[in-house]
Write a protein that binds this DNA or RNA. Sequence first.
DNA 1: CGCTGAATTGACGGACATCAAGATGTGTGG
DNA 2: CCACACATCTTGATGTCCGTCAATTCAGCG
Lengths: 222, 222
Amino acid sequence: MLAATNPAIFARQSMPVRSSEVPDSPLAMMGAPMRFARNAEVYGEDEPAEYYYQVLSGAVRTYRMLDDGRRQVLAFYLPGDIFGVEAGDVHLSSAEAISESQVLVAKRSAVMARAEHERDLAKQLWTLTVRELQRVHQHSLVLIKNAEERVAGFLLEMAGRGASGTAIELPMSRQDIADYLGLTIETVSRTFTQFVQSGLIALETSRRIQFRNRAALNRLNA
Amino acid sequence: MLAATNPAIFARQSMPVRSSEVPDSPLAMMGAPMRFARNAEVYGEDEPAEYYYQVLSGAVRTYRMLDDGRRQVLAFYLPGDIFGVEAGDVHLSSAEAISESQVLVAKRSAVMARAEHERDLAKQLWTLTVRELQRVHQHSLVLIKNAEERVAGFLLEMAGRGASGTAIELPMSRQDIADYLGLTIETVSRTFTQFVQSGLIALETSRRIQFRNRAALNRLNA
DNA sequence: CGCTGAATTGACGGACATCAAGATGTGTGG
DNA sequence: CCACACATCTTGATGTCCGTCAATTCAGCG
């Protein structure tokens, strides 16, 4: 839902960039592609927000920690998605690569400077923030639902973003999903098997999911 | 937390406007004060977002409904706060007056038109959205905590916004609080009395709350 | 007053967390 | 290619927090 957040800040084209394919945009010159290993930090909470980022390949999660060690995953970013814009001067969350990832990094000041005289760009930046806001709004709705509904919603959200086929590959672990949905890893796992048993999905591997009854999932998504 | 969101879009002064006092700003001319009765709708979900709003007196809640009737209150807006900016072209949530309220209403197109040539204004609009985003981020963190922590956080949030004294007046009902925190009215009520019994707060009336042990509340706020 | 909606309090049950064990998968080094 | 180690995922047993249902108290108001 509320899927791709990539107006032409990095890429002029309107579709998400496919992995390993650098967007042919004016911003490509402002940004440098960087590699991040699995679990490597892209930026940390409370650090100055000096860059904008776009996922080229792999996947990224943003999260915040509660003092007692609980973790709330705020968002997953897939190829084409832009992130790191959420903040004022300082990052409100940390970002980590979920898997080996390639990320385009553009200096914020440079982007902003260009936005000064390019009306379009400024508007797009704003739009980006608004989209992000919508996403988070949507997410807070998720957190008042029950486990079944949360997981169903999650699967449909991911399906709406990744490939359009009948199966999706989840880049993130069960723990990531749990922390995103505000559940425990066990509850997520149990809900998956429950979905399998009721014929809603099938698991090719634990990370690869076949949709068998999308209508029923939509019904749960309430 | 993350309290007042009122850069000089409506008022040039940096402090929230006190109730019934119209901000002496250039924008006051772009906006007209309107009265809303208790529970009156300011705008509805999916309606075109044609105006920006600033609370002058009273209080406003924004919310979204789930199909099964559950309601998620997304935010409370107090005097000085600006709302209605969250959306693209369409409102993502509904807004209602919590009590008899006075709201300054400014045509969005007019504000945007001015923003075109007033750099400051444009920046402030963006800042406003970012602040809103921070608020919502914060809110989604709340929803993974337990009841005690949620209520404590709520009280501290309200304390940080309203008067600076040792007591606060809550304009909203227990039901509003419950829907904001993702709890039931009964759990909110029980948590309040629990706080009273442990000497953290005192209830002058059910809506008026005295702080007795802010340190303990902060500890719960985790 | 009595009426009405809001808030509180109690009894109970259920959904999900917690604790614990096992199964499956994956990478590494011999 | 196998074997071992370690992480991830699944499954089971039990506990607990909070939701549900229901009754009572309280506050405002005609």
